[in-house]
Design a protein around this nucleic acid. Structure first.
Length: 198
DNA sequence: TTCAGGATGTACT
DNA sequence: GTACATCCTGAAC
């Protein structure tokens, strides 16, 4: 499988968010083991005009500094004091934009991901746990062992990257409003959330 | 199946 | 001090 090139991320953020659906996210652990999952839900955040983005209006702080980096950079931040959110920086360097990875399905080494999430093997998960395995940004980061220590990584490196997979059938792509941004005024209605159904 | 409430720490006003 | 791109639990239905 081929790693997505930097030019993939150096494009319109909303388009990148849509096209990340179905692609394989690969996380290489310090011991060399690779955790793989298929991206099933994303959201676009565009700093120059999107009040839901941490870097709205090009606001530059210690936290948002990563959003101004080159496309293909990993942006991870802590939310609600105990969860992390994984993002991919998009568009040209200096444009603070990113795609939030909100959900995925396990593809390889599900036992290790299950251990991170629930402290048990995949086969020992309950039916409820299987139905809500990696269906949220905090759950995904927990499952893949991602924290702020991985903030700033390059997706063209080996620790974390995305591989090209067959594009999903457009029939299965859903579009809607983003989650958890009620404070963002007019931006709450932007249809910048994408997910795969079935 | 849905829903309210609490956990928890950092960034920023 | 307040808000936060969330998740889990337990109770009611």
């Amino acid at each position: 499988m081929k790693k997505l090139p930097r030019t993939f991320y150096d494009r319109d953020t909303v388009q990148v968010a849509r096209e990340l659906l179905g692609q394989y996210l690969v996380r290489t652990l310090p011991n060399g083991t690779q955790l793989v999952c298929r991206i099933t839900e994303t959201e676009a955040y565009v700093g120059r005009m999107d009040k839901a983005c941490h870097a709205y209006g090009y606001r530059r702080t210690a936290r948002t500094e990563t959003l101004f980096a080159k496309p293909g950079t990993v942006y991870i931040y802590l939310i609600y004091g105990m969860y992390h959110c994984l993002n991919f920086v998009t568009e040209q360097e200096g444009e603070p934009c990113a795609v939030l990875i909100r959900g995925a399905q396990p593809v390889k080494n599900a036992d290790i991901i299950a251990e991170n999430r629930f402290g048990c093997k995949y086969e020992d998960m309950t039916a409820y746990q299987r139905g809500h395995f990696l269906d949220g940004p905090g759950k995904l980061c927990r499952g893949l062992g991602l924290t702020r220590a991985e903030n700033g990584l390059d997706l063209l490196g080996d620790e974390l990257f995305v591989c090209r997979a067959p594009s999903p059938d457009p029939e299965h792509i859903r579009t809607g409003k983003r989650i958890g941004i009620d404070y963002a005024q007019e931006a709450v209605d932007f249809p910048w959330r994408f997910w795969l159904e079935e």
